[in-house]
Design a protein around this nucleic acid. Structure first.
Lengths: 111, 111
DNA sequence: AAATTTAATCGTAATATTGCGATATTAAAA
DNA sequence: TTTTAATATCGCAATATTACGATTAAATTT
């Protein structure tokens, strides 16, 4: 039915999913990379960088913010968005631990 | 319209997105974590582990495989699925580089 | 205060994803 | 060779996501 029952999974699994979802779209990856390149990081900036309408970019930014991937502070008429270091650290750590676990297991059945 | 024009983004951005999408669902994260825990990693295993029907799990596995997150080898009537180390390495490296870049920039406007 | 600038929100259309029962497929077992 | 076991695929319904024009909201300029 297309309904995802988050209650069937652990809190940690849902939190991880939220961060991954916040990046699981080429526009979001492009936003991430743009925020990495630029120090100054205003929404209007991103709109002119991407092939998307202002409303669409704003919506992407909203969801990335909601998930904790980015932070935003109002600066006059514009908004300064930037990456949330701890979210990146979380994902980096997650995949790092996964790799460690995988490597500690040695060769498995598929390789 | 809900249509994502991958052609508007770089090849690398789309590849990164594909891997992230393969994990951007609690069931997929649960599958990843299950494959980490178990050496023996058969689909039926996963079905009994998750609160989802066999057809649904099979579909998730198919998409994770298509994205390159997991590998699968047929073993008689069952299939042995396991994590693709290089996909994990890719993601780990991606977030690692992002973090390095971010930290090299020092404090930015939002912190 | 009016005009301007910038970003958020609303409403809606289109597409994508998720889930599952039913069925098909394929290999092993009996 | 029939039966059984394990996955994959099909078809469809329900929900979620994406996109954008139009509008609103809020701060800055004029």
């Amino acid at each position: 039915m297309g309904v995802t029952k988050t209650s069937d999974f652990t809190e940690a699994q849902n939190q991880t999913t939220a961060l991954l979802k916040a990046l699981a779209h080429p526009a979001r990856v492009a936003i991430l990379e743009h925020l990495l390149r630029e120090q100054r990081c205003i929404c209007g900036d991103i709109v002119s960088e991407l092939p998307l309408a202002q409303a669409t970019v704003s919506q992407h930014l909203k969801e990335m913010k909601q998930a904790g991937m980015i932070l935003g502070t109002v600066e006059g008429t514009s908004v300064c968005y930037c990456l949330n270091t701890s979210a990146l650290e979380f994902l980096h750590g997650y995949f790092g631990r996964a790799l460690d676990t995988l490597k500690a297991q040695g060769a498995n059945c598929c390789h």
